[in-house]
Amino acid sequence: MRPLSLELGPLGVRLRPRIAITVAALALTGFGALVASVSLGTYAIPVGDVLGALLGTGSGDADLIVHQLRLPRALTALLVGAAFGVAGAVYQAVTRNPLASPDLIGISAGAGAGAVAAIVIGGVTAAGAGTFGAVPFGALAGALATAALIYVLAWHGGTITGYRFVLVGIAANGVLAALTRWMLARADIDQASRAMVWLTGSLNGRGYDHVRWAGLALLLLVPLTLALARSYQLLQYDDDTALSLGIPIGRARIALLVLATSLAALATAAAGPVAFVALGAPQIARRLAGTAGIPLVISGLTGAVLLLLADLAARLLFAPTELPVGIITGAVGAPYLLLLLARANRSGKGG
């Protein structure tokens, strides 16, 4: 399908029908998954009552369950999935490597180490309880420090290659995982048990504090990322092409990585280091959109849908026992990672 050109005064907009259809389909799927997540559970609520509660016309027990128990969890999954999707897209595009995901190269591990330090050393709770604000700041500090260290160590010969960036990140991931285990070993049993559930990646007990943090992260960071859309698109090609078109690749790469790291850190603070959403969402989005590059908005929508569906499965598969959502994403994502590695080896990019 050919792109449609729209002229709005001095502005020219090119609309690709396939991308528009993909965005609409993902938005509808996300809304359907949100309603299903609120409707289904030990106490099932009819969809009509769910919609009534969402529109403010509900009443009784259904309204209480929707607004106090299930809606905050579902909204957190939606926002955290979108943040991971956008963060993964930026990392993979900037490094030009499909394995450059925050959860594989140490960014989520750095956020996790910072958040665990806030939970264990600071004595706050993983689920919030009015002191949740300390966890995002700890996660953000840990993630940014990790990203800066990886960037410095991966810098070689005046540039950064995606392959070197991933290798350094994997090494950092191992060191930070060991640091986190050391903090857990020194913590008391209550703090360590809370932190361990959070480290698995869990949406259980999430409230509106988590929704506000994740929503604020998206509201502030996604527009800034979209403002760098031209740099984002050109950095998916080689550095010489970007330089020839006037892109300051050093500054652009650092700015995009800082934004992506912040998104991944705050998403990790809200739900723990949920595995493989940031890895899989950009590649799935690229195939859905049929583009050579990684579409940023579609990656965010794909991440939101993936995490919503994974959390729904985590709640229902072994009901009434609820699994941490990270177990579901890990079980699905591990085979996907093996597939990516096999493709990289076949194309000669696996090292």
Rank of each mutant, 00 (worst) to 15 (best):
V23S: 10
V23H: 04
A24K: 05
L26E: 08
L26R: 09
L26P: 06
L26Q: 09
A27C: 14
A27V: 15
T29H: 00
T29R: 00
G30D: 10
G30E: 07
F31D: 05
F31M: 14
F31G: 13
G32T: 13
G32E: 06
A33D: 05
A33E: 04
A33C: 13
L34V: 13
L34A: 10
V35H: 04
V35P: 02
V35S: 04
S37D: 15
S37R: 03
S37E: 09
S37L: 11
V38K: 07
S39K: 06
S39I: 06
G41E: 08
Y43M: 13
Y43K: 12
Y43T: 15
I45L: 14
I45D: 04
I45P: 09
V47T: 15
V50D: 02
V50S: 04
L51V: 15
L51K: 03
L51S: 03
L51P: 03
G52H: 08
A53W: 01
L55Y: 00
L55M: 13
L55D: 03
L55E: 06
G56H: 05
T57D: 02
T57Q: 13
G58H: 02
S59D: 12
S59G: 01
G60H: 02
G60L: 05
D61F: 00
D61S: 11
D63A: 13
D63T: 02
D63Y: 02
L64G: 00
L64H: 03
L64W: 01
V66F: 00
H67A: 01
H67F: 00
Q68P: 00
L69P: 00
L69N: 00
R70E: 03
L71W: 01
R73T: 10
R73D: 01
R73Y: 00
A74C: 07
A74V: 05
A74D: 05
L75A: 12
L75S: 03
L75G: 03
T76D: 03
T76I: 05
T76E: 03
T76S: 12
A77N: 05
L78A: 15
L78I: 06
L79Q: 06
L79T: 07
V80K: 07
V80W: 02
V80C: 10
V80Y: 03
G81I: 09
F84W: 07
G85L: 09
G85D: 08
G85M: 10
V86T: 11
A87C: 11
A87N: 08
G88M: 08
G88C: 09
G88L: 07
A89K: 09
A89Q: 10
V90Q: 06
Q92C: 11
A93L: 02
A93H: 06
T95A: 15
R96M: 10
N97E: 11
N97P: 13
L99M: 14
A100S: 15
A100H: 08
A100C: 14
A100V: 13
A100Y: 07
A100G: 12
A100N: 11
S101P: 12
S101C: 09
P102R: 09
L104H: 11
L104Q: 11
L104I: 15
G106R: 12
G106K: 12
A109M: 12
G110Q: 12
G110V: 11
G110S: 13
A111D: 12
G112H: 13
G112C: 14
A113S: 14
A113D: 02
A113F: 15
